[in-house]
Structure formats: structure tokens, C-alpha cells
Nucleic acid binder design. Structure first.
Lengths: 155, 155
DNA sequence: GAAATTTAGGATAAAAAAGTCCTCATAAAA
DNA sequence: TTTTATGAGGACTTTTTTATCCTAAATTTC
């Protein structure tokens, strides 16, 4: 299980934050976004193709073309982006193992495993607090919270 | 920047937790560990080669050989393992960008970036709380805390 | 309409991560 | 001493992720 996000997701977040800081009426060239966000241009182009299919942005070909954010950045969370880009994460899984967390325990003779509602995991609470911190941050942080926050970008 | 751990790190944690649950006097076959922890045997062998070089375990070749934990599991933290395996993480970096976090701001005319102690990042506190939760969990969880916690493993 | 510019889309390449295979060295047991 | 078992170590393969390239299509400007 992997909790955090891929490079692609990081790029998407950075690019969308950059776009959300731009006057909505203009189209911005991917090349320009690439330079300001320090994301490789061809790679960013691919990303924007998918973002357009997802309808979080619209694009325009040709002279004075580019891309424009159309999603509501105050509703677009990091979780939305990461799960769409990297795939949905299963926070019920043990972060160290390959099985469900807290619902499998051994019988007393230790011979058979069977499911049980209560957890016998020593780290159950500790892990859950950790997972909760991650879920909380991702789910409750939106692109619009970065508004005017341009220290992420190059001049 | 990537916060969490690779598959290799997950394997190391799972294997060391398994070993820490074993009577210290025995050598345990990597094949057996592999089966109980559901880690591919050849891959786990590679991992144990490195763990032996690191002196967290010792190994013995030949019949009745295997590996044995010699590190103090009550001092061995997840952070120790993850940083050794994946490389040291720089928590001063912005988790969305490629620059320092909270110490670079633009001049008023927006033309030059210069370092500054105070952060102008809107998400500075929020990100720091998030980072702190991760650092706290990794640094303050040791292998010995999983003692007797065998629901991670296969019978 | 022609030229210039910019995204779309498919193919490909490079890098990193994960996983495998084979032979050798070593140790214990027969 | 021979056989068998087991980790060491190097080379190799596969899969995933990240990144690039080239041509076509669309749009604006001249």
C-alpha cells in the first residue's frame, strides 16, 4: 500500500494551483505553465490531455490557445486529484502488510485465521490516528486554498 | 518529494517485525520468513544481504542456517528503516513543489526571489502539522511495538 | 487562403523499482 | 568425506513510472 502521491499527482496539483491563480478569461499556454511550475513540457501536455477529458480544464488549439481551469477550485480537493491520478487508496488495509487491518485474528490454538470485527492489532489506534491525519489533510485541502500562493512557482 | 515508503521498506519492516517475534537463539530460514510474510523469496534474500551488511541481522550459511535479528528492536524505528532503505527525506521541502518550504518569497515588484525566514505560504501551518504527524509516527514507532502482533503474518 | 502557432494523440525511450535466476561458498549432517 | 541445505553475490528480466518525439488537427493572424 502506498499512501502518498506520485510525481504525476504532484505535477497536477502544482499545475492546477498555478492555473487557479490566473484570470479565468485567458487561455494559458502549456509551455508557459511548464516553465513556471518546472514540469517537463511534453509530460505536462500529456497530463493536460487527461485533465481535459476529465473536464477539470478546457483547452484550445492554435494561436492564442492554451488551457483554462473550469473546475470549481474551492471544491477540488487533493484527494480528488490523487485518487483520480494514482487510483483509489484503501485505507482499511494495514499499512505494513497485505491484508485487512484489524479484522483478522488467529484462533487460540493459532492454527486458523478467521475474521473478527474487533482488532487485535497492537498498533491499531496508532495507525488509525496516522491514517486519519493523512485522510484529513488530503480531503480537507482544496486547490483554492493556494490562491495567491505563488511561492510555489518560478517568476 | 515522496513521503512514505517503498515496497522494499514495507518488506523490511514486515520481515523485521516477524523476526522480532522469534526466539533469538534460532536462525530462521529466509524461505520460511518469505512464506510467512508473503514476500517473494529471491527479493527477500537480497534485502537480507543488505540487512546483514548493515548489521541489523546476522546470517549463517549451510544446513540449519538462516538469519537472526541482532539490532535492538526497541530502538529500531520505522524512520531508521525507511531512511536507510529509501534515502533520507527532506521535510523542509514543500510537499507540492521543488523548492524550500516557507523561506522563499517574491520581492514586491515580483521580479526576484529571495530567501526569508518567515513563510508567506498560506498552507505553511497546515502542511507543517501534516508533516509533523508523519515524522512523529515514523520516528516514534519501533519494531518492538509490534511484539506478539502476528496478525500481519500468515500461519 | 496561407502561414504561424498551439494542443491532440500515438509511438517510443529512459529511468526506477520490483522481482528472478544461476552459480559459488559455507556449514551441518549423514 | 560426501551429501544436502542454505545464504552470498552477480547478472538478468519484468513492470511501472516518468519523459520525449513526431505528425496531425485546429485556430488565429496576416
Amino acid at each position: 500500500m502506498s499512501f502518498l502521491y506520485s510525481k504525476s499527482s504532484e505535477y497536477i496539483i502544482r499545475a492546477l494551483v498555478y492555473l487557479s491563480n490566473i484570470d479565468k478569461e485567458e487561455y494559458i499556454m502549456i509551455k508557459s505553465i511548464s516553465e513556471h511550475t518546472n514540469i517537463p513540457h511534453p509530460f505536462l501536455s500529456k497530463i493536460f490531455q487527461k485533465l481535459a477529458a476529465k473536464k477539470w480544464i478546457i483547452s484550445k488549439k492554435g494561436k492564442r490557445g492554451g488551457v483554462k481551469l473550469i473546475a470549481d477550485s474551492s471544491k477540488l480537493t487533493l484527494m480528488d486529484i490523487i485518487e483520480w491520478s494514482d487510483g483509489v487508496k484503501d485505507f482499511s488495509q494495514c499499512i505494513f502488510g497485505d491484508r485487512e487491518c484489524g479484522d483478522i485474528i488467529p484462533k487460540h490454538d493459532n492454527s486458523v485465521w478467521y475474521p473478527e470485527k474487533q482488532s487485535n492489532c497492537i498498533l491499531y489506534d496508532k495507525c488509525n490516528r496516522f491514517k486519519a491525519a493523512i485522510i484529513d489533510f488530503f480531503s480537507n485541502t482544496t486547490i483554492s486554498e493556494f490562491k495567491e500562493h505563488n511561492s510555489l512557482f518560478r517568476q
